[in-house]
C-alpha cells in the first residue's frame, strides 16, 4: 500500500521530465523502499551507493560549515545522479540524462521528496 503510493509519486516524478531516467526511495541505511528503475539496474547497488554518498555528504556539509545537507549531485559522462533527503530516514535518488535541465529537476525532486517524507 505505502509502496504503491510511493511508486506512484516516483512514476509521476519520472513523467515530469523526459530527462529523468530512474528514481527510487531508499532508507538511510541503504535499503530500497520503492523504485521506478530501468530493467537490469541493481536495486541493492542503487540503495547502498545512495546511502553511502548521502551520509558522506551530510558529514562533509556539516564539518565544512555548509550546514544541513540538501542534496548530493554526481555528474558523469552519461548523466547525473541526484540524491536528496526525504525527511530524516530516507533518500530520494534520481538519475537523469547528460544534458538534463537541472534547475527544473531540482524543483520537481524537491516537491516529490516533501510528499514522500510526509508518507514515511
Amino acid at each position: 500500500m505505502r509502496e504503491d503510493m510511493l511508486a506512484s509519486i516516483l512514476s509521476e516524478l519520472n513523467g515530469t521530465s523526459a530527462d529523468i531516467e530512474a528514481s527510487a526511495v531508499i532508507s538511510t541505511d541503504g535499503l530500497m523502499i520503492a523504485s521506478v528503475l530501468p530493467q537490469g539496474m541493481d536495486e541493492d547497488r542503487v540503495g547502498a551507493m545512495s546511502a553511502a554518498m548521502l551520509s558522506l555528504g551530510d558529514r562533509t556539509s556539516g564539518e565544512l560549515g555548509r550546514g544541513e545537507l540538501e542534496q548530493v549531485l554526481i555528474k558523469g559522462d552519461n548523466g547525473f545522479v541526484l540524491m536528496t533527503h526525504a525527511g530524516e530516514d530516507a533518500v530520494v535518488t534520481v538519475m537523469a540524462k547528460p544534458r538534463a535541465k537541472l534547475g527544473l529537476i531540482f524543483l520537481d525532486v524537491k516537491r516529490a521528496s516533501e510528499n514522500i517524507s510526509q508518507m514515511l
Binding site: S27, T28, D29, G30, L31, A51, A52, S55, L56, D58
Partner: peptide
C-alpha cells in the same frame, strides 16, 4: 557514518555504518 538500521541488523543494534 552510522544510520538507523532497517535491515536484520536492528535485532542486534540500532545503528549501522553506511
Amino acid at each position: 557514518t552510522d544510520k538507523a538500521a532497517s535491515d536484520m541488523t536492528k535485532v542486534k543494534k540500532n545503528q549501522t555504518t553506511v
